[in-house]
Nucleic acid binder design. Structure first.
Length: 111
DNA sequence: GTGCTGACTGCAG
DNA sequence: ACTGCAGCCAGCA
């Protein structure tokens, strides 16, 4: 493998595993990868995820359930639309019942 | 080759 | 309760 950067790769793997109708946070993914302090890098990985077609980046939001990365999509409403298609209700750039549909890889994927 | 910035988060003041 | 700063990795000027 020529991919030295396993971090980005792992991030994509986890994001792909996010079930439809569920969302997770950058911090949760970072923590699952064993780099809780690199949550910011996870967000940056999503930015680079644009080069990959099968990355549901709309299912990744910040710890407040806010769609901080919506501005990076094709349109500002694209992320919200995708979430709605997943069955996730978004209001005012914020995931409704975020606490309830939150998908934690640490718990779901087990340690 | 060096330095800055960025889709974040937690702790300190 | 609010604001500010440091840590992490990768891409770009």
């Amino acid at each position: 493998m020529s991919t030295q950067s396993t971090f980005f790769n792992d991030v994509y793997e986890v994001v792909k595993l996010i079930p439809k109708g569920r969302v997770t946070t950058y911090g949760a993914i970072a923590k699952y990868l064993g780099a809780a302090k690199s949550s910011r890098v996870v967000g940056y990985a999503m930015n680079a995820a644009h080069t990959f077609p099968d990355i549901p980046a709309q299912r990744v939001v910040n710890r407040n359930g806010l769609l901080t990365g919506k501005h990076h999509f094709a349109t500002e409403t694209r992320m919200e639309e995708l979430l709605k298609e997943d069955g996730v209700t978004v209001k005012d750039d914020q995931v409704v019942d975020f606490n309830r549909i939150f998908w934690d890889p640490m718990s779901e994927l087990e340690v």
